Amino acid sequence: MQKSARIASALAAAVALGLVSTAQAQQHPASGGKEKCYGVAKAGANDCANLSGTHSCAGQAKTDNDAAEWKFVAKGTCKSMGGLTADEAKAKLKGM
């Protein structure tokens, strides 16, 4: 009886881990539900490194709406927020 209980527990754990992995994959920004949007991050609220290379971490944006800074936003909403694609942001920075 103890052996079957252990086997059942092991199977339940394996199934639970599989479900957690699936849920995490669905929430990850790169999984398709999010896109990088440049020029919409507030100071201290960017998601990662900027285009100009002055920092490589989240939360280090110095000014609001800097074209070099980005945030993940829901796919298809960047333009309506006044944001830029990576190519548009690079072109804007090049022209400055």
Rank of each mutant, 00 (worst) to 15 (best):
N46D: 14
T63V: 14
T85F: 03
K79F: 00
G33A: 10
M81E: 08
L51F: 05
D87Y: 00
A16W: 06
F72N: 09
K79E: 10
M1V: 07
K79Q: 09
Q60Y: 09
K42G: 00
G18L: 04
Q60V: 02
E69L: 05
K71A: 05
K75S: 12
V20I: 15
Q26W: 13
A58G: 15
A45Y: 08
M81F: 01
S80L: 11
K3F: 12
Q2M: 10
L84D: 09
A12C: 06
K90L: 11
G83Y: 01
A25H: 12
L93F: 01
A5M: 09
E69S: 15
A14P: 00
E88S: 01
A74M: 01
S9I: 04
A23N: 02
K75Q: 12
E69H: 07
H28D: 10
K90Q: 13
P29Q: 06
M1G: 13
L51T: 06
L51D: 11
G83W: 02
G32W: 07
L84E: 09
S9D: 07
A14K: 03
G82F: 12
M1Q: 07
A8T: 11
A14G: 14
K92L: 13
A13K: 05
K94F: 02
M96F: 12
N65S: 14
Q26P: 00
S9L: 13
H55N: 12
A23G: 02
Q60M: 14
V20A: 12
S56H: 10
M1F: 04
K42N: 04
A68I: 08
A43P: 06
G32M: 08
F72Q: 01
A45S: 11
A58C: 13
W70M: 06
V20T: 13
Q2C: 04
Q60N: 11
G53W: 01
T22S: 12
D66T: 02
G95L: 11
S9V: 01
L17M: 13
K94H: 08
A25V: 05
A30N: 08
G53C: 06
D66N: 14
W70Q: 04
S31G: 11
N50S: 09
E35T: 06
C37K: 10
